[in-house]
Write a protein that binds this DNA or RNA. Structure first.
Length: 565
RNA sequence: GCCUUCGUAGUUCAAUGGAUAGAACAGGGCUCUUCUAAGGCCUUGAUGUAGGUUCGAUUCCUACCGGAGGCACCA
């Protein structure tokens, strides 16, 4: 369609003897009342031709009108010199038909066809409790993974659990201190981590002790510390696999910090004197200041690789194993400048591998109102938060009006709770901090995940009734002019494309709310009665098209689409 | 101190340099003999400050103010 309009504009310009700009900008007006497509060519050209933009726009519009494409019903000039196009009802009918035909494929694009993208969806510290920050990270990673796949890419999702770190050693020390070696669980390992971290900062002797344990673990020196560490690591890894499975995420592979660290250390030492330099006390540093970045330690004076060196090793592990066209990592914004250093160092060490690696940041979460607390400070554990939300969902379902005849089974409650959480994470632009208020962020009304689910459930309900009444979908039986619903439905593929290009799931979220709103409005004003209802087949066709687009959209956000709620 | 980033209704978020700055929640008023009222309809209300670039700036540039983050042995 866009090509048709662009061609028509180009033809009109030629007939007027005006050289067409290389790129004709064609967009959807922000307001549906302004038509279906609009172009600003007149305003762009007005300046170089030294003409009044509105008059020029009118001339171009008149020219297009002499030979307009059959899908166009009106060409109008508005505002400062916009040329707006209105499309014929037949166009929307054809698009609706196309949606019904393509079903779950509707929305998929080919922009990234043939590209292999390695996506690091989650990189938790295994010994640290899995908290909402990890949940946020995983939610964004999961959505991006699906969006990129929908754009045609071959996405390889991987996890990079931090199985070895000073933090792990702190937990190991605390376990040994409290003699819990034979009673380790995820819970008391979490407590141990908190206790070890606290004591490390407060007690100089404990600090030395933990540093010693840390070295033993890195060097795999057999002893009680290593035994505790290995057992704890297995428990935590099993937990990580369990919770990510609960959240519907899969990984094609795992890279561990321990392996990345060993390799990273070798790589850094190999380039010592070139890319890397000796710093104070025998540490090995990367002089980022030479490039306008931070100078950072890669290998400590104790000879241990830190995060920096591990990330260098990780790049080689990733590229050697998967050979991706692009390697993407999702992290917290607090690591933005850190990863600029890594990228620079990696580009100097590896060349192309470094250039193909991108580091994408999401915002930090801030908790408003102090309504949430946990033993780990003001950051709640992911599962605790999910359970709290589930409680709220159950309450809502049991108190809800008589018309809801849906049993509140656990699966549905969890689906709705996760929808609420995921939506609140994904509705904001990537990189912006997220203010999370348990009471307000998790509204089930309006701009929310459950609202989208509810809209979908209603459309399914209509389709069930249609089936019972024996009404078949038919796009030909038009009732009046196309409304907001038809005008939004066919735009879905463009939204998916943009979300993929910008790595921005929130475009999907914003669009779906707008779409759901249009559907709910249509729903409220168009009841299907029975088979005798002449408009029913068209209404059923729209309900079906809406259900398809909404389900495809929710899937890109990793939100479940319940049949009833 | 230097660097990064963000300031939009009372609140939480939108807006490829474009039109009358969109939603949602909260506030006010309607609306369930109809496929699910977690809904629909109406209504009050916003671009931090000062300049600059532009036909046109929430968007780009500069300064200032305010929030968040980072700046060598944590991850």
């Amino acid at each position: 369609m866009e090509d048709t309009l662009k061609a028509a504009i180009k033809r009109a310009l030629e007939n007027l003897g005006i050289a067409a700009p290389a790129d004709i900008v064609l967009e959807h007006p922000a307001d549906l009342a302004h038509g279906d497509y609009s172009t600003n060519v007149a305003m762009v050209l007005a300046k170089q031709l030294k003409q009044n933009p509105r008059e020029l726009a009118q001339k171009i519009a008149d020219e297009i009108n002499t030979n307009k494409p059959k899908e166009v019903t009106a060409v109008e000039v508005a505002g400062a010199g916009f040329i707006n196009f209105r499309l014929a009802p037949e166009f929307f009918a054809a698009m609706t038909k196309e949606i019904l035909k393509q079903k779950e494929k509707f929305g998929r694009g080919t922009g990234l066809k043939g590209k292999k993208i390695l996506l690091e969806k989650s990189a938790p510290n295994l010994f640290k409790p899995f908290h909402v920050g990890h949940l946020l990270n995983l939610s964004i990673g999961e959505s991006l993974s699906r969006i990129l796949a929908a754009s045609g890419a071959k996405v390889v999702p991987v996890a990079y659990p931090s199985d070895i770190s000073l933090g792990a050693s702190k937990a190991v020390w605390a376990v040994m201190q409290k003699k819990l070696a034979n009673a380790m669980t995820v819970d008391n390992l979490g407590d141990a981590y908190v206790y070890g971290t606290k004591m490390y900062d407060e007690d100089e002797a404990v600090k030395r002790n933990i540093d010693e344990i840390n070295k033993e673990i890195y060097e795999k020196k057999s002893g009680s510390a290593l035994a505790v560490y290995e057992k704890g690591r297995d428990i935590c890894l099993a937990y990580f696999k369990r919770i990510t499975k609960r959240l519907g995420s899969k990984f094609d592979g795992y890279f561990f910090e321990s392996e990345a660290g060993r390799l990273g250390k070798k790589i850094v030492e190999k380039h010592l004197g070139g890319i890397f330099e000796n710093g104070e006390n025998g540490a090995i540093i990367f002089p980022g200041e030479k490039y306008g970045l931070h100078t950072r330690v890669f290998i400590t004076s104790a000879g241990l690789p830190v995060y920096e060196a591990k990330d260098i090793g990780l790049i080689e592990l990733k590229f050697k194993k998967y050979h991706p066209d692009r390697s993407l990592v999702i992290t917290d914004v607090e690591q933005k400048q850190y990863f600029e250093v890594i990228k620079k160092a990696a580009t100097l060490v590896f060349g192309e591998w470094g250039e193909r690696s991108s580091y994408w940041q999401h915002g930090r979460m801030h908790f408003a109102g102090g309504s949430i607390s946990s033993r780990y400070g003001n950051v709640p554990l992911a599962e605790d938060l999910i359970d709290m939300v589930k409680g709220k969902v159950s309450e809502k379902m049991s108190s809800v009006e008589k018309k809801s005849r849906v049993a509140a089974d656990d699966r549905l409650v969890e689906d709705i709770a996760l929808a609420g959480l995921r939506y609140s994470f994904l509705r904001t632009g990537v990189g912006k901090n997220i203010i999370f208020d348990f009471d307000k962020s998790l509204s089930f009304e309006g701009d929310s995940g459950p609202y989208l689910q509810y809209s979908y459930a209603r459309s399914r309900s209509v389709l069930r009734k249609a089936k019972d009444e024996g009404i078949k979908a038919d796009v030909k039986r038009k009732i009046g002019e196309p409304g907001a619903l038809e005008k939004l439905l066919y735009r879905f593929p463009e939204i998916v494309r943009r979300a993929g290009e910008e790595f921005a799931p929130h475009h999907i979220a914003t669009y779906l709310v707008e779409l759901a709103s249009a559907w709910n409005s249509f729903y409220a004003n168009n009841t299907i009665a029975d088979k005798a209802d002449a408009g029913a087949p068209y209404k059923v066709a729209l309900a079906s098209a809406f259900a398809t687009v909404m389900r495809n959209g929710l899937d890109l956000l990793a939100i479940a689409a319940p049949e009833r709620m």
